[in-house]
């Protein structure tokens, strides 16, 4: 009797877990999707889409809205009627325009979204792929005053971690800057201004390449199939459709070329080098910790020994022996690598 009840309990528990969590069609997932698609969330997402179209000077229609929201056209049509009645949107023929009231609303949501992404990138251990997804949920729940408190706590940051400007409290944004990476000519140098975080698959590819805003790039090859460029000592190859999601600001030709193709990860025991700076990829607590340790431009660092299993490596930094992991050392740019005298 005991064994029978025991095994039946196990089977029942397994079934319940399966129905609750199965990917795509699990009850939990359905319930969450239903919550996400609640009308307020949907109309706020619609306003955001209209604002992005306006900012990038594209035309917004019911069709583009349906595509961006992943919702059937019929439902979007009903939605647009409701937000038109709320005087947030006006339509001229097929194209949709935001009213001033609608623009203010959209900017408030975008401010919450970008502030939250900034918060996640600076003060939590979450990685790039999580930021956007979580901010998409949080933007609908963060009130104006909460957003202001958050901004004040972080020192009113002007940009989010993707390089996008965060609207100010009064809803101001600078004019759009940057041009797609695809528009540069071979040999031209530029700085990455922005990585578009939608669609997710393309963004994941950019993150996997190790690209991030503020990185300096130099184009080496452009063709219809691929775009090749140098960034932080590595050559990257992207498909044009992926590269189009990277915006860059061209650098003046006369600006001295940064000679920092190497990182501390390349340093072998018995060698030393001078620190050039920390990669922008290293943020928040981690960045402050490395600076506290004295890893600043001009500091001389010598590699002393490796752990018996190869990682971490101990470095002599300003007289102290500090162990750093490989991926941390890869965020510290160095030059003039040499043997210790």
């Amino acid at each position: 009797m005991n064994e029978l009840t025991g095994s039946m309990l196990v089977v029942l528990a397994a079934l319940a877990i399966y129905f609750l969590f199965r990917p795509g069609r699990g009850w939990l997932e359905r319930w969450r999707r239903w919550l996400r698609l609640s009308d307020r969330v949907l109309s706020e997402d619609a306003l955001k889409h209209l604002y992005h179209c306006e900012y990038e000077q594209r035309e917004a229609t019911i069709q583009s809205l349906s595509g961006a929201l992943g919702t059937p056209v019929e439902r979007v049509a009903g939605l647009v009627q409701r937000i038109e009645a709320g005087e947030l949107v006006t339509s001229e023929g097929a194209s949709l325009r935001l009213t001033p009231k609608g623009r203010e609303y959209a900017l408030r949501i975008i401010r919450a979204h970008r502030l939250w992404e900034r918060y996640l990138s600076e003060e939590t251990g979450l990685k790039e792929p999580d930021w956007h997804k979580r901010a998409e949920q949080k933007e609908h729940r963060l009130s104006s005053s909460e957003a202001d408190a958050l901004a004040a706590r972080m020192g009113n940051p002007p940009f989010d971690p993707h390089g996008d400007p965060i609207p100010t409290q009064r809803g101001q944004l600078p004019p759009r800057r940057g041009q797609p990476l695809t528009s540069l000519a071979v040999g031209e140098r530029a700085r990455i201004a922005h990585l578009e975080d939608e669609p997710e698959a393309v963004y994941a590819q950019l993150v996997a390449e190790g690209l991030h805003p503020l990185m300096a790039v130099q184009l080496t090859h452009v063709s219809a199939e691929r775009i090749c460029f140098w960034a932080e000592g590595e050559e990257h190859v992207l498909a044009p459709i992926v590269a189009a999601n990277v915006s860059v600001v061209p650098l003046p030709r006369e600006q001295p070329v940064e000679e920092s193709l190497e990182t501390l990860a390349a340093l072998e025991p018995g060698e030393e080098a001078t620190v050039v700076g920390l990669s922008p990829n290293c943020r928040g607590l981690e960045r402050r910790r490395l600076m506290d340790l004295g890893l600043l431009p001009g500091t001389v660092v010598a590699a002393e020994m490796k752990s018996p299993v190869g990682d971490p490596t101990a470095f002599r930094i300003r007289g102290a022996l500090i162990a750093l992991r490989g991926e941390q050392a890869a965020n510290i740019r160095i030059n003039s690598r040499r043997q210790v005298a």
Binding site: E123, T124, G125, G284, L285, E286, R288, R289, L293, P312, A314, A320, L321, I322, A323, L324, R325, Q328
Partner: peptide, 8 residues
């Protein structure tokens, strides 16, 4: 939040 450091 996470940041590794180990002083020897």
């Amino acid at each position: 939040a996470s940041a590794f450091s180990l002083e020897l």
